[in-house]
Design a protein around this nucleic acid. Structure first.
Lengths: 133, 133
DNA sequence: AAGGCAAGTGGGTATATACCCGCGTCGTGT
DNA sequence: ACACGACGCGGGTATATACCCACTTGCCTT
């Protein structure tokens, strides 16, 4: 009976479900929540290296590299070199800024919807609990 | 500022982190939490078709099919045919039962640890919140 | 200046996960 | 009995994510 309450499995289910909410909202823009979020982080830090970005988003460097390559293919970010020839420096491309602008209200709507469904207080509880894991 | 509180991204981070806890605990057995959990579900329903199992675990049929194939390669489950030749029926193999037995206490320890860290009450809150998403 | 270690990437491999398409099987209506 | 729609699955493709290894570039020490 306890196996139905596995924290990990429940988290995964919730994550898949919630991801789909955001993905659906952002679908008109042709990006998913992971890409949109990464784009936001790049904007916040640009110009930024893969390593620094990976630290910031707490993902493996290679993961960020591959995800960034998709954004590059979509022409949302530009991948160039810094003074240090080893570093791949990321900057937001014009199309990327457009996506960021258009996506903001779409993101807001999903976020607000979830806050409303849970209730402001429980939504905060959730964030605290997730951070405590 | 609000973008740092994206429910989806926070859920993903928490899921990655928590998954690693379970994965580390189960590592001596050579399986991860996803495989272990799937194995438990198969045991509960065996013999079970891919479609039924997918419904139960709320994953796409093709996903379950591929995951099951890994379990088959590890010789933890057997994939055969039912009377209906279309169906792939899954059953637990001897090695699978062994993994289930040996894994139970390992799984318990992680689950208990998390419950302890959060406190029983908050742990329940978390499960409720995740279910409400 | 040369050697050598550290840092930054990229690519290979593996799992997780979804969606879509094609193929084979079932069952039912005529 | 046959045809056709429904069902079950496998495989292709794409993203997410991690770990490990090889290659390049930097930099520091001798």
């Amino acid at each position: 009976m306890t196996s139905d309450t596995c924290h990990c499995i429940l988290l995964r289910k919730a994550t898949r479900k919630v991801s789909s909410y955001y993905d659906e909202a952002l679908a008109p823009l042709g990006v998913n929540i992971g890409q949109f979020s990464l784009l936001r982080n790049i904007r916040k830090l640009e110009p930024v290296s893969l390593t620094d970005l990976a630290h910031k988003v707490e993902l493996d460097r290679s993961t960020v590299g591959r995800n960034a390559k998709v954004l590059e293919r979509l022409e949302l970010v530009a991948i160039g070199h810094g003074e240090d020839q080893r570093e791949a420096m990321l900057t937001i491309a014009p199309k990327g800024r457009e996506i960021l602008d258009k996506g903001a209200p779409l993101w807001d709507s999903v976020q607000d919807e979830i806050d409303a469904r849970l209730g402001r207080e429980k939504a905060e509880q959730l964030q605290e609990l997730l951070a405590a894991l």
